[in-house]
Amino acid sequence: MSSLLRVGVLSLQGDVREHLYRLRDTGVEAVEVRHPADLTGTHGLVIPGGESTTMSILAERDGFFEPLQQYRRDGHPCFGSCAGLIMLADEVLDGRAGQRTVGGLDIAVRRNAFGRQVDSFESEIDVIGLSPQPFPAIFIRAPWVERVGSGVEVLAVWGPGRTPVAVRQGPLLATAFHPELTTDLRVHQMFVDTIAAYA
C-alpha cells in the first residue's frame, strides 16, 4: 500500500532534502512542492524545518496560504517539524507581528521558546506509539507548545515542566524537534501510516 503513496515536502526554504530522504527511506514517493500546483496528486504534505518567519513571508508572497489551507481542510495529512509545527499551529507567540500560519492544530506555540542557538540541544525523549523508547530528538532554536486544545493528543513532553513537544490532531502531526536530522525513521513512518489510513 505505502509504495503507492506520494508525499510532498513544502519547498519554500529549509531542510527539504532531509525530509525527502527520510520519506523515501520509508518506501513512499517523495516530491518537492515548489508551487501550489505541485500539491495535486500528493496524499500528504511535510512542512520542513527552517526559519518560520522567512517561510511565512515566502508563502504569503507566492500566494501559498490559501492552497495550503484548502489542502489541509480537504483532510490531507500534514506533518510539520520545528518551523513546520509553527506553520500548522492556530496561534503563534513571539512571532513576527501578524505572522500568518496554515493552522489546523488547536494549539499555541512559542517561537524560540528554548532560547537562541547556543541553547539548542539533543535529548532522548519518549514518544507515544514508538517502541522501543526513546527517540533521539534534536531541538534547534525550537518552539514549544503552550496551549493544547481538547482535541489535541500530546505525544511527547520535555523537561520537568512537561512541555509538549510533539502533538497529533486527526491527520495532523507535528514535532518541535527534527526527526529528519537523524536516521531514525520512526516518526516519518508514523506519518506515512497516518497517510495510509486517510488515503
Partner: peptide, 27 residues
C-alpha cells in the same frame, strides 16, 4: 505522554551545529 526517563541534554553537539545550518538552506 510520560516524562522522559533520561533528562540528559547536550548543547553544542555536531548535529545541533550542523543542523542549524540545514535550516538556512535555500535562503
Amino acid at each position: 505522554a510520560t516524562e522522559n526517563a533520561s533528562e540528559t541534554t547536550q548543547t553544542g553537539t555536531v548535529r545541533v551545529k550542523r543542523g542549524m545550518a540545514e535550516m538556512l538552506k535555500g535562503g
